[in-house]
């Protein structure tokens, strides 16, 4: 462009036709520009914190860490010093445990695919707690960050076989004495469940163990297949002989049923 004098450049920039040219050039460039994705699109709320922040809050601000899973899971492995208050018990147990509402609370879940900490957060806020946080991606993130977990009372692991939802009905038909145990929350159970299933939420399992027959096949159903393994191990350790877990939990079953209906 060196051959265009400055005066000429100034004069032509006032022309209407140049505006048209600019529009034209933009039209050419726009499709390519639009493809450049913003790299920081994640909209993470401030309530979500990562593991090092959680460690800082625990040490420096005396934050209380609350495991929102069931009692059995919490006793099996948890962030050191955690309080075991299952999501279903937040309304009942949180206030007695932490009467001071300015107490910093950090809720966490078993894994990155669990919404219990989020629900606990909402409940705590409703109860009036001011500083509530969620450990993002739960225990999985905690472990990934290299922090240790503590075990108070371990549920001895045992080989647990699983059954896929496509085979479940067939199995129940063959073994009519099958006991279907749904360990999801009462609300989730009310929303959808298998006919004849018994609902004992996981946080109550150790208290209602006697309701589970020991000599018939027991099929354990959870939300997404991530929790039933430990529940099954607990049942096996307590004398239930034939324990099977539903692969992928109720979520997978619902999705596969929906897909089947669609096709």
């Amino acid at each position: 462009m060196g051959w265009i004098s400055v005066d000429l450049m100034v004069s032509i920039f006032h022309r209407k036709s140049l505006r048209k040219a600019a529009v034209f050039i933009m039209l050419f460039i726009l499709p390519f520009l639009s493809s450049c994705k913003a790299t920081h699109t994640q909209d993470k709320s401030q309530k979500n914190i990562d593991s090092p922040t959680a460690v800082y809050l625990i040490k420096e601000k005396k934050a209380a860490v609350i495991d929102t899973m069931s009692y059995l899971e919490c006793m099996d492995h948890r962030i050191p010093g955690s309080h075991c208050i299952a999501l279903e018990e937040i309304d009942k147990k949180l206030l007695p445990a932490f009467p001071n509402k300015s107490q910093l609370l950090i809720f966490y879940c078993e894994s990155d695919k669990c919404s219990r900490a989020g629900q606990a957060y909402e409940k705590a806020k409703l109860l009036g707690y001011e500083s509530v946080y969620i450990l993002e991606d739960g225990l999985v993130a905690w472990k990934r960050a290299g922090y240790e977990v503590e075990t108070i009372q371990r549920v001895k692991r045992a080989p647990v076989i699983s059954i896929k939802s496509v085979r479940l009905k067939e199995f129940i038909k063959e073994r009519k004495d099958t006991f279907v145990l749904d360990i999801r929350s009462e609300d989730a159970f009310k929303a959808n469940h298998l006919d004849g299933a018994k609902n004992i939420p996981f946080f109550m399992l150790h208290k209602r163990l006697d309701e589970i027959p020991k000599n018939v096949p027991v099929i354990v159903i959870d939300e997404n297949g991530k929790r039933s393994f430990l529940a099954c191990c607990y049942l096996i350790n307590n004398g239930v002989k034939d324990v099977i877990r539903l692969f992928g939990g109720m979520e997978t079953m619902v999705r596969q049923t929906r897909n089947k209906d669609n096709t």
């Binding site: 099996d76 492995h77 078993e110 894994s111 225990l139 999985v140 472990k143 990934r144 290299g146 977990v149 692991r157 991530k226 393994f229 430990l230």
Partner: peptide
């Protein structure tokens, strides 16, 4: 093992 599925999600120990 610390980053494996069994450790992260199931909290398996070696002897499991």
């Amino acid at each position: 093992y610390r980053n494996s599925f069994h450790s992260l999600y199931e909290d398996f120990k070696c002897y499991d």
